[in-house]
């Protein structure tokens, strides 16, 4: 019975993941491989960034709130791209919140604990999902309609040039594990339902949910990747790597906010405030 329950949990989380995250890894890999009728528009310098404004704006007519379009209307390149990054973060946080609510047991937790789990978990989950949109050369943007090269991002002035390069380095190691969307659904749920976030009230309840997810993940990996014996321990190690990545990211964002003439979205301000 327990085995059947864990399989059901894996299925439920996979379904919730496909329901709430618009760009699955499977779809992103098709875009990255150029196997779509309209390949992504490649942004590799200032000229192509300007062109993206027209091209992507045409693609997105009727979507007035799209961050890429409004961000591209800003004057400075770095500010524009920083705003694009924020837009993607905010969009992903809203998707992750809906996904979290679909994790069995999450919605019954104390509301303050739900807030704490999201505050500490969303960026780790975001960088996990971002890896699906990355290859060694760049990053898919605007729901797969654009592709920004890694070299262009590295050529920005500091500190903006430091924003995404560590995420590329993480993504290259993480993508080497060759997880699919069903594996990622369980991994992202395990990131969110984590019993050792600071300030949690009901740790035992969260640990109970987390243990089920981790157990379901272990069984799912055995079935889905039977030849990769060490995949499960490798993936647990990635949880520690993600925590380090987020700590450094939060510091960098605070530095950008203090030293650059840029604003930070109120939702991201809430998350970063008193985080680490």
């Amino acid at each position: 019975t327990q085995l059947a329950d864990l399989k059901t949990l894996a299925r439920q989380l996979h379904e919730a993941y496909l329901r709430h995250f618009h760009l699955s890894k499977a779809k992103a890999r098709i875009f990255l491989a150029g196997k779509t009728s309209t390949p992504p528009f490649v942004i590799h310098d200032l000229d192509t960034l300007q062109q993206a404004q027209q091209i992507l704006a045409t693609h997105m007519q009727g979507d007035e709130k799209d961050g890429l379009v409004s961000a591209l209307q800003e004057r400075e390149t770095e500010s524009r791209l920083f705003r694009c990054c924020q837009h993607t973060s905010v969009e992903t946080v809203t998707q992750l919140t809906e996904f979290a609510k679909a994790v069995p047991g999450f919605a019954n937790l104390d509301l303050n604990d739900q807030v704490t789990l999201l505050k500490y978990g969303v960026h780790e989950a975001f960088f996990t999902l971002l890896a699906s949109c990355m290859n060694k050369d760049g990053l898919l943007v605007a729901h797969g309609k654009g592709f920004i090269t890694r070299e262009f991002l590295k050529s920005l002035r500091r500190p903006f040039s430091d924003l995404l390069e560590p995420k590329f380095q993480f993504a290259m190691c993480f993508n080497a594990l060759q997880l699919d969307d069903s594996d990622l659904a369980l991994f992202v749920a395990a990131i969110i339902c984590c019993g050792d976030r600071p300030g949690l009230a009901n740790v035992s309840h969260i640990e109970f949910i987390q243990e089920s997810i981790i157990h379901a993940l272990q069984l799912h990996l055995q079935a889905n990747h039977p030849d990769n014996t060490f995949l499960f321990p490798k993936l647990l190690q990635k949880l520690a790597d993600l925590r380090q990545l987020v700590t450094e990211h939060a510091q960098l964002v605070q530095d950008i906010k203090k030293t650059q003439d840029t604003s930070l979205h109120p939702l991201l301000q809430e998350i970063y405030k008193d985080m680490y």
Binding site: N112, V115, L118, L267
Partner: peptide, 21 residues
């Protein structure tokens, strides 16, 4: 926590609502 995380709180309590940039 509720006071300091009003938007997260709102996202948790409501179904998906747009978060404007």
């Amino acid at each position: 926590l509720k006071e300091k995380h009003k938007i997260l709180h709102r996202l948790l309590q409501n179904s998906t609502s747009p978060v404007d940039l």
